[in-house]
Write a protein that binds this DNA or RNA. Structure first.
Length: 250
DNA sequence: AGCATTGTTTCACA
DNA sequence: TTGTGAAACAATGC
C-alpha cells in the first residue's frame, strides 16, 4: 500500500500517541530494525515520550521530548501503523511501542520490508514531492537520459512517489513514461509538477494511492478512462507500468 | 509452479 | 566518476 499518501496517514496515526510515556519496545525483528541489535532501540526509547512527527516522502520520523532519541519509521511495501488503546494482538507486528496508559503503537507488516531505526539519516532523500518548488523540480527531474517514470520513482530526486502514483501522475500530465527525463521542456516540467501536486493531494484526501482515476484500469485488458484506448504495459524503471499510448504518446 | 508485488539498497556495467 | 538498470531482500497472493 504505502506511498506518500499512506505515509501521511501513518503520520496522523503516530500523532495520536504523542505525549505518552514509552514503557516497552518490541525490537526483536533484526531485519526490520537493522542494523540495531535487539534491545538497542528499546534501551534508547524506554522512559521517553513521543513529541513530534515528521514526514518527507515516504520516510517518517518522530522526535521525543526534551531532545531525546529520534525514531525513524518506513512502511516498506506493505506496512501500516496502528495505534490502539486496548492493543489488539496481531500477527505481523514487526515493531511496537507500549505506553504507560496501556496503548500500543505497532508497525504491522506482512512482508518485512518496513523499517524502524534510531537517528535516521535523510541526507540522500530528495524534497517531498508535494512540497518541492518549481525551480528545484525542474532541476531535479528534467535532466539525464533515464525514462521519466524512473526519475519520478527516484527518491533521491524527489521523494514520495511510488509505482501507482507515478502512473497516475504521468497519465494526468499526458506524458509518456518512456520520455527521457532530460528531454522535457520547461512548460512540460511545470505541467508535470502540477500533476504531481494534484494527484498527491487528491490521493491523500481520498485515502490512498489506489484512489487515482487510472488505477482501476491498471490491468491487462484495461482501457484509458479518458479515451477508451487499450492501455500499454511494460516494465519501466524496474516496475510494471501502464499508460495510454494515445493520450501519452512518445 | 511460477510470477508479480503500492519499496529500498546494493552491485555491475557502460 | 557518474548515471543507469538489474538483482537482492522477505513474504504473500494469484
Amino acid at each position: 500500500m504505502p506511498e506518500l499518501p499512506e505515509a501521511e496517514r501513518a503520520r496522523h496515526q503516530i500523532d495520536r500517541a504523542l505525549g505518552r510515556e514509552i514503557v516497552a519496545v518490541d525490537d526483536r525483528d533484526t531485519y526490520v530494525c537493522r542494523p540495531h541489535a535487539p534491545g538497542e532501540i528499546a534501551a534508547a526509547l524506554v522512559g521517553h515520550k513521543l513529541a513530534r512527527t515528521h514526514r518527507r516522502g515516504k520516510f517518517l520520523w518522530v522526535e521525543t521530548e526534551d531532545g531525546g532519541p529520534v525514531l525513524g519509521l518506513h512502511l516498506g511495501m506493505a506496512g501500516r501503523i496502528a495505534v490502539e488503546q486496548p492493543p489488539a494482538p496481531r500477527n505481523w507486528d514487526r515493531f511496537a511501542l507500549d505506553f504507560a496508559d496501556g496503548g500500543r503503537l505497532a508497525l504491522h507488516d506482512k512482508r518485512r520490508l518496513g523499517r524502524a531505526v534510531l537517528e535516521p539519516d535523510f541526507a540522500h532523500v530528495g524534497p517531498d514531492a508535494a512540497e518541492v518548488g518549481r525551480e528545484e523540480f525542474r532541476r531535479r527531474i528534467g535532466r539525464g537520459t533515464a525514462p521519466l517514470k524512473a526519475r519520478l520513482l527516484d527518491q533521491r530526486a524527489i521523494s514520495g512517489i511510488g509505482n501507482l502514483l507515478a502512473d497516475e501522475i504521468l497519465w494526468r500530465a499526458r506524458l509518456s513514461p518512456r520520455r527521457p527525463a532530460g528531454a522535457l521542456s520547461e512548460a512540460e516540467l511545470d505541467a508535470l509538477r502540477r500533476a504531481v501536486r494534484a494527484a498527491t493531494r487528491s490521493a491523500i484526501r481520498k485515502g490512498g494511492a489506489h484512489t487515482g482515476d487510472l488505477i482501476p484500469h491498471r490491468h491487462r485488458d484495461g482501457t484509458c478512462p479518458r479515451c477508451g484506448t487499450p492501455l500499454a504495459r511494460d516494465t519501466i524503471g524496474g516496475r510494471t507500468t501502464y499508460w495510454c499510448p494515445r493520450c501519452q504518446p512518445g
